[in-house]
């Protein structure tokens, strides 16, 4: 249907760069004007790295075990932080709109779901980087552990875990869209729920058999296994990283379908207008 007033948007398959930036900018402004938010963002990763760093040092001292322990613990922790911080960033990104009762303005604008997803992915990756960068530095200065020791494969680990975090984060936001604020606590819980199955600090093989089925269905597990293999043998697992990518792609497709359905459900029930009230 044509209209003399309304023009079709060109190149509409891809997210709009302007809208993705606008959405990310809204949250950058929010953080720039709120030092407690900035502190909180960096607090937990630093606290975790300090705790685990000292625990691993104590184990090394007690049992005389070598760098493998420290490297596995700290490597697992830092990479695990990528996964959880991306999910938490996505959850907070959405919650901030609910808390400020801004969803109505946002989704009455030309913002499309792909723009929203683009904005939330971009901001969560940025927020995650700001969150974990100080923890990387703490690990280096306190425990002489450099994340860069994983070499050129490190960006692949980070990208795969970030991708995994985006997929799971999308499920969490979908949950909120479908069940409203009542699901908030579930959202926080879900950010850590699958971490024990992904075995960041220990081999998957020590988990009960039934848990292992879950483990091998999660992309993050393969990244952590490759990281542990690299710590122990000096060689990463390309086959595992390939599987992580395939699984991530499958989860991404499912996450997008679930998100779209949850969004439509929120539009049907009126939750998009009521949330936050």
């Amino acid at each position: 249907m044509t209209s003399p007033v309304i023009e079709s948007e060109a190149g509409s398959f891809f997210p709009s760069w302007n809208r993705v930036c606008g959405l990310a900018l809204r949250h950058v402004y929010l953080y720039m004007g709120s030092w407690p938010r900035l502190v909180e963002m960096m607090y937990w990763p630093i606290l975790n790295i300090a705790m685990f760093g000292f625990i691993s040092l104590a184990i090394v001292k007690r049992f005389g075990q070598v760098d493998v322990v420290t490297d596995t613990y700290l490597g697992g922790l830092l990479l695990g932080e990528i996964l959880t911080r991306v999910q938490i960033a996505m959850l907070i990104f959405f919650m901030e709109e609910i808390w400020s009762r801004n969803l109505g303005h946002l989704f009455a604008s030309p913002l499309r779901l792909r723009d929203y997803i683009g904005g939330v992915f971009a901001f969560s990756a940025f927020r995650c980087f700001i969150s974990v960068a100080p923890a990387f530095a703490v690990a280096y200065f306190l425990f002489d552990f450099s994340i860069l020791k994983f070499g050129w494969i490190l960006p692949v680990y980070l990208a795969l875990l970030c991708f995994n975090g985006w997929c799971f984060g999308t499920f969490i936001v979908s949950l909120l869209l479908r069940f409203g604020l009542a699901a908030e606590w579930l959202g926080w819980m879900c950010s850590w729920l699958l971490m024990p199955f992904m075995a960041p600090y220990y081999p998957v093989s020590i988990l009960p058999q039934s848990f292992q089925y879950v483990s091998w269905a999660l992309p993050g597990t393969y990244v952590f296994e490759s990281m542990k293999s690299q710590v122990e043998t000096g060689r990463f697992r390309a086959d595992y990283l390939g599987l992580a990518l395939v699984l991530n792609l499958a989860y991404f497709v499912v996450a997008m379908v679930v998100f779209k359905r949850s969004f439509n459900s929120a539009k049907r029930t009126g939750r998009l207008l009521q949330m936050g009230e």
């Binding site: 809204r26 402004y29 929010l30 400020s100 009762r101 801004n102 109505g104």
Partner: peptide, 11 residues
């Protein structure tokens, strides 16, 4: 339907 309270009007 509010605008975000913590942002300035210009933002």
């Amino acid at each position: 339907v509010d605008l975000p309270n913590r942002l300035t009007v210009r933002q």
